[in-house]
Amino acid sequence: MDPRISIVTLGVADLGESVRFYRDGLELPMQESEDGADIAFFELAGTWLALYPRTALADDATVSSDGRGFDGITLAHNVESREQVDSVLGDAVSAGGDLVKPATETEWGGYSGYFADPDGHLWEVAWNPYWEFDG
């Protein structure tokens, strides 16, 4: 297996609301789709983000869609500076997300915080002074 993640698909309660959050609020570049499409794709650097109705995604994977609370996964967005951490968290809140953890100094020497999208998917926004930023 090649060591890569091609697409991260988030199961969402309201596709329209989630598209507005990611496309309009966070300004992620969305792939054009047909009217009434039941999935949305956003091209990111090195991978894709997909939004798909939670129940349909669960059906596709043949699992129950009634999961609640922390799903045991977070997504991370690394930035070039501490200031960008605060800026991205602010953008997420302005777009309709919830600030879960304000940015703070980390035990590993960086700076990070968390927001949740309209479906509660957790995103960490982090600056790591030990990593070279590659965009």
Score class of each variant (00 low, 15 high):
Tyr22Glu: 00
Leu26Lys: 05
Gln31Asp: 14
Leu44Asn: 03
Asp24Lys: 04
Asp38Trp: 00
Glu43Phe: 02
Arg20Asn: 08
Gly36Ile: 11
Glu27Cys: 02
Phe21Thr: 01
Glu17Pro: 05
Glu43Asp: 14
Gly46Glu: 07
Val19Gly: 06
Ala37Met: 12
Thr47Asn: 06
Ala37Trp: 08
Glu27Tyr: 00
Gly25Arg: 09
Leu28Cys: 04
Leu44Trp: 03
Asp35Pro: 12
Ala37Asp: 14
Glu43Met: 06
Met30Arg: 11
Thr47Gln: 09
Arg23Ala: 09
Ala45Ser: 13
Asp35Thr: 12
Ala37Lys: 03
Gly46Ile: 04
Asp24Ala: 12
Trp48Ile: 02
Gly25Ile: 11
Phe41Ala: 06
Glu32Gly: 09
Gly16Asp: 15
Pro29Ser: 13
Glu27Ala: 13
Gln31Met: 13
Val19Cys: 03
Glu34Arg: 14
Gln31Cys: 09
Phe21Cys: 01
Ser33Trp: 03
Ser18Phe: 01
Ser33Ala: 13
Gly36Glu: 11
Phe21Gly: 00
Thr47Cys: 07
Arg20Ile: 00
Ala45Cys: 03
Ser18Arg: 02
Pro29Cys: 09
Leu26Asn: 08
Thr47Leu: 06
Trp48Phe: 00
Phe21Pro: 00
Gly25Trp: 04
Leu26Glu: 02
Phe21Gln: 02
Asp35Asn: 03
Glu43Val: 07
Gly25Met: 11
Glu32Tyr: 05
Tyr22Leu: 01
Pro29Arg: 11
Val19Thr: 13
Ser33Glu: 12
Glu27Trp: 06
Glu27Lys: 15
Glu43Asn: 12
Ala40Gln: 12
Thr47Met: 08
Arg20Ser: 12
Phe41Pro: 09
Ala45Tyr: 06
Ala37Arg: 07
Gly46Pro: 03
Phe41Thr: 12
Leu28Pro: 01
Arg20Lys: 11
Leu44Pro: 05
Ser33Lys: 15
Phe42Glu: 05
Asp38Ile: 03
Glu43Pro: 00
Glu27Thr: 13
Glu32Thr: 13
Phe41Val: 06
Gly46Cys: 06
Leu26Gly: 06
Arg23Cys: 05
Gly16Val: 11
Gly25Lys: 01
Phe21Ala: 02
